[in-house]
């Protein structure tokens, strides 16, 4: 693993709070063009890892390099890194379009260009028909997609500062199966167009199908990692998630298929 100024690197990050270890010497690299998925049981440190990467939480030891630098001003970091949190509390009656427009706050483009980007971002998440709806009247899944569009619109255009990264914390948690698939396809597409994507997921098969690499956390440390085929073996799944599974070859795609026994 070589640190470059064209990647997102977590270097030996640990987080200790009140004598508890939330994250234990974790190193991860996300390259542009890649989808890296972080898996792990509840409390494994996935969300802590995301907070460390986004700069919300300083690691006790170790550091995070965004395109080679750890000291970007927030306003510049925002042009290279979009973060979708697990859930958002927004209780003011914005229209959907206005919510997605908030994603353009760090950008300097004019209003008309912003509106165009907002429309495109909403189309990416199958949310264009919601454009004029009031946000507070949406369902949980619709809200999640609107925030996805907001984060997409934030890093929609390439930045001269460096490559762009999309961080998604359980983006499918409130979604129906069709929109789960759509969301992961969208993430894959963004990676194929040059972004680095880091996703936190619970669904092993969605992870196997759409990721280049998996990082599996347990009790704050990396328990397994590699391509889906390397990381998802019967033994590791049993040891980490405590479930009895059969791993098969996906009949259509080149990826493992996890079947509950």
């Amino acid at each position: 693993m070589s640190v470059s100024n064209q990647s997102l690197n977590v270097l030996n990050a640990s987080v200790h709070i009140d004598g508890k270890t939330l994250l234990d010497d974790v190193s991860i690299q996300v390259n542009p063009g890649e989808v890296v998925t972080v898996l792990g049981p509840n409390g494994a440190g996935k969300s802590t890892l995301l907070k460390v990467i986004s700069g919300e939480r300083k690691p006790t030891t170790g550091e995070v390099l965004l395109n080679g630098r750890s000291d970007w001003p927030l306003s510049q970091q925002a042009l290279m890194m979009g973060v979708l949190p697990q859930s958002s509390s927004l209780s003011f009656p914005f229209t959907v379009e206005e919510v997605v427009l908030l994603g353009r706050i760090p950008c300097t483009s004019d209003h008309q260009e912003n509106l165009d980007i907002v429309s495109k971002a909403l189309k990416e998440v199958d949310g264009f028909h919601l454009k004029d709806r009031q946000y507070t009247t949406l369902s949980g899944g619709e809200k999640q997609r609107v925030h996805m569009a907001r984060v997409l619109s934030q890093i929609w255009t390439e930045s001269e500062l460096g490559k762009r990264y999309l961080l998604l914390d359980e983006p499918t948690s409130a979604l129906d199966p069709a929109h789960q698939q759509l969301t992961l396809k969208m993430a894959r597409k963004q990676a194929d167009q040059g972004m680095g994507v880091l996703v936190i997921l619970h669904d092993l098969n969605l992870a196997a199908r759409y990721s280049d690499r998996l990082v599996i956390l347990k009790e704050g440390a990396i328990a397994a990692q590699g391509t889906p085929a390397e990381a998802l073996t019967r033994e590791t799944v049993d040891a980490i998630f405590d479930i009895d599974v059969t791993i098969a070859e996906h009949p259509v795609y080149q990826c493992p298929l996890v079947i509950n026994n």
Binding site: S54, Q77, A78, M81, G82, P85, S88, I105, Q154
Partner: peptide, 10 residues
């Protein structure tokens, strides 16, 4: 949007 979200927006 929330404090974290505002931070992510720079």
């Amino acid at each position: 949007l929330g404090e974290s979200e505002a931070r992510h927006l720079g």
